[in-house]
Write a protein that binds this DNA or RNA. Structure first.
Lengths: 339, 339
DNA sequence: CTGTTAGCGCCTTCAA
DNA sequence: TTGAAGGCGCTAACAG
């Protein structure tokens, strides 16, 4: 094969196959049944010979369909997001879309930057997993009127498909588990609630459940992820406040659970022995940390897969009304909540 | 603002600004100094009014520069890859490129699929982090003659820029550390060596270093990541073989370290007490697992950043000869290798 | 069944 | 300093 300076185009193929561009185009678009066997064969050969691949750029330009889907991820370093991403990708491949992954790193300007970028590449839809997403970004998103689905986050005054965990069910299950295990003082720990519905819903179900059990005290605290001293203080105080009785901490997400575990270690408390611990999101190291950490595992892959299916539905125009899709979590019990 | 059915084009802007497309194009391409202040202002306003964004598709088609860079990641679930990705992304943003992330999930057909895909989107360069990449994919890559850099993997008979860890230095440091800590029987554990240079280089330096110390026995074993029984056996046997003396395991990467830790737990051995443990790649949970696990941390972000810089250099045509760039690792000592 | 033609949105000579 | 015209690679009428 000769090393062509630049890539072969549809015209090259047409020429090589001794035909017109249209037939080649038809071949490419699965309308092979309209072509006579000999022509078809010539085209096939030409394509193989020239190692031809149609230009998505040109296609996109012409048809207005780029088969591109934008993914906005707040923090690609977060295992939760990565697993969701994995499901999205699988679905993309199945449906013939290509994901354009954008990691906003939780920074507003990057969010805006990427939103523009996605528009300029004419993505046909967007999947957003941006817990921290700011209003500004969202309003811009809303204007764009692009098919979009949110993962793990509802937004007030923003009608949009959502897929995520059944927070209420999950938090209820988790709380009941703690109570059943004999914990009588419960602390729900999360990053600042803000308007993040996930956190709010989990907290609400936590409270609601605890209330059903007299004799159980439930409180909550908020802390930014990386203010270690503050976290140390919260935990230390919680521990001291309930000296004699069995107490447990429930952490609202995986990243926070990591911080909590570190904090407990710093202040010399052992989960399982001195204090109970249960965290949302499964952690690959959960069984290795001390006596193990009980987690509430989310079906992350499925969530991602479902999210993509949903954008595609919108893209294809199956309008319907705004839809919310929730999945159940699964409690994985380990030493940190043992009796 | 009226809700336009479809997006504004350059013609719309030209019309709105009462000028020709050329001037708008000039504006977009930073040739503003060629435009008269009033015209410039009109254009600016028109763009803002119409919320216009130039179509990258059309641009790419015209100029042949898509500003797209393909990333092939063997396993996006691997924290190492994710951190590298993070560095790549940062560099992309800085240089004005957009990453097209492809997760091959360690499967050959997906590798091939994505390679085609990237070509069809006319990416200008590729960064590959595919430890498991098969020959078939590589040869196709080679034919494409696209600017490309490999991360963390050299490939025989395949001239290509590479950026990664200084494996020799890192493994030497790690091995010396173990020996200094008084371990006298050393086991280097890796996934099957195959032709994966990373593993081979690390093993080689390990061996080489150990040989300098008489009285130290060094051996190695290979195991697929998920054959738990096999791993259990290897570790159990190693433990029994050197009953009386201090021994340590060195794990060739983070994913394997996780498996090793699980295995040790299963067979009832405690790292730090019964057996030493040191793993390549830093783990977020390293300090939480038992007495802590000593790791050799790679400057992952920098590796990613450097890799992207390198493709960009190639894209810009700074030819030079094939280049290999290595970074040093950093040993983070924890309880698993304490005396 | 097959080929011709006219753009998709943009950039780039070339003239004015 | 500005604008008109042609074409990048492809698809979609519209004719044969």
């Amino acid at each position: 094969m000769t090393t062509k300076a630049s890539r072969a185009t549809i015209s090259d193929v047409a020429k090589a196959a001794n035909t017109g561009k249209t037939s080649v185009s038809r071949y490419l678009n699965g309308e092979k049944h309209l072509l006579s066997p000999p022509l078809l064969e010539r085209i096939e050969k030409a394509i193989a010979d020239l190692d031809y691949r149609p230009s998505q750029m040109a296609r996109g330009l012409k048809r207005g369909r780029t088969r591109l889907i934008g993914l906005i991820i707040a923090d690609i370093t977060n295992p939760y997001s990565v697993n969701v991403l994995s499901g999205i990708e699988a679905a993309c491949r199945e449906k013939g879309f290509t994901p354009l992954v954008c990691n906003t790193n939780n920074e507003l300007d990057q969010e805006l930057h990427y939103l523009d970028l996605l528009r300029s590449y004419q993505v046909e839809g967007i999947v957003v997993n941006a817990v921290g997403m700011r209003e500004e970004g969202l309003s811009r998103l809303q204007q764009s009127a692009l098919p979009m689905v949110l993962i793990d986050r509802k937004i007030p005054d923003f009608a949009c498909d959502v897929v995520g965990l059944d927070n209420s069910q999950a938090a209820t299950t988790a709380t009941e588990h703690l109570i059943e295990q004999g914990f009588e003082a419960l602390l729900f720990l999360s990053e600042p609630l803000g308007t993040v519905n996930t956190r709010q819903e989990r907290l609400k179900a936590f409270r609601h459940t605890a209330e059903r059990y007299p004799g159980v005290v439930a409180q909550n605290a908020e802390t930014p992820l990386h203010e270690t001293e503050r976290l140390d203080n919260i935990l230390r105080q919680f521990h001291q406040q309930y000296r004699g009785i069995r107490k447990a901490v429930m952490s609202a997400n995986g990243a926070l659970t990591l911080q909590v575990a570190r904090s407990l270690k710093r202040i010399g408390l052992h989960w399982g022995a001195d204090i109970g611990l249960l965290g949302f999101d499964e952690l690959e190291w959960a069984e290795l940390a001390g006596v193990g950490i009980t987690t509430l595992k989310q079906p992350t892959w499925q969530i991602g897969y479902a999210a993509l299916e949903q954008v595609v539905k919108r893209i294809e125009g199956h309008e319907e009304t705004v839809r919310e899709q929730v999945f159940s979590g699964e409690l994985i019990v380990r030493g940190s909540t043992a009796r």
